[in-house]
């Protein structure tokens, strides 16, 4: 008997004793009281992200250029995914064609991406490796991550957030910069992931 067959046989044997499963109740809150992109949600997202030590800017299509310049201040080389909107592209952009080595990525100063969705309740942004976000390594190795969130991408609750992500794609949920509570359970920000997370909320 293979291990597979044996483990499955064991499970079936164990379950021959009666179990009375119920259909999971779904009466918890699944949708927020605010529609995606509502000003209250942008406000809440800002508060939550700030609470976990991310920096948050808001921008309009008109001010985006200068806001991004502020967010990228002091950087020389900024890696960007191949599908980043042309108008967001900084002068110092290094477009990732998939050939940059990890060592290369370790020498760039920042990464600039879009995202697929964000949840205000928890201050979470989601990347799904689409063309405007790039492969996962580029948002991981550089020490500063500047992420543009479009207002319409902002939902309120975690259940709403999950409906906007495709679980068959590589997903990264990000809630603030890298952190640890491993020393005396005190939270300190900045360990292995990007130590600076700058979120730009774009009211377009």
């Amino acid at each position: 008997m293979t291990a597979r067959d044996e483990v499955l046989a064991r499970i079936r044997y164990a379950l021959s004793a009666p179990a009375d499963p119920v259909d999971p109740p779904r009466d918890y809150r699944r949708t927020g009281e605010h529609a995606p992109g509502a000003p209250q949600l942008l406000q809440l997202l800002t508060e939550r992200l700030t609470d976990y030590k991310a920096t948050v800017h808001s921008a309009t299509p008109q001010t985006l250029g200068s806001v991004l310049a502020t967010a990228l201040h002091g950087t020389h080389r900024v890696v960007v995914p191949p599908g980043l909107p042309e108008e967001w592209m900084p002068a110092s952009a290094v477009v990732d064609d998939g050939d940059l080595s990890y060592a290369d990525l370790d020498t760039v100063d920042a990464v600039l991406t879009a995202c697929v969705a964000a949840a205000a309740d928890t201050g979470t942004i989601v990347l799904d490796a689409a063309a405007d976000q790039g492969r996962r390594a580029i948002t991981l190795i550089p020490d500063r991550h500047v992420c543009v969130v479009r207002a319409a991408q902002v939902v309120q609750s975690v259940p709403e957030l999950l409906t906007r992500a495709d679980p068959r794609r590589p997903l990264t949920f990000i809630s603030g910069p890298s952190a640890t509570s491993d020393i005396e359970l005190q939270r300190v920000e900045g360990v292995h992931g990007p130590r600076n997370l700058i979120v730009v909320i774009l009211n377009d």
Binding site: R48, Y52, G98, A119, D121, T122, G123, T124, A129, R135, R136, A137, V158, P167, R168, R169, P170, L171, T172, F173, I174, S175, G176, P177, S178, A179, S181, R187, G193
Partner: peptide, 21 residues
Amino acid sequence: STGERMNPYTSMWAGITEGDG
């Protein structure tokens, strides 16, 4: 667990993705 609204990072993947990971 950590008493956070959401932990800083959650990674999800299904099988392998060409050119990523």
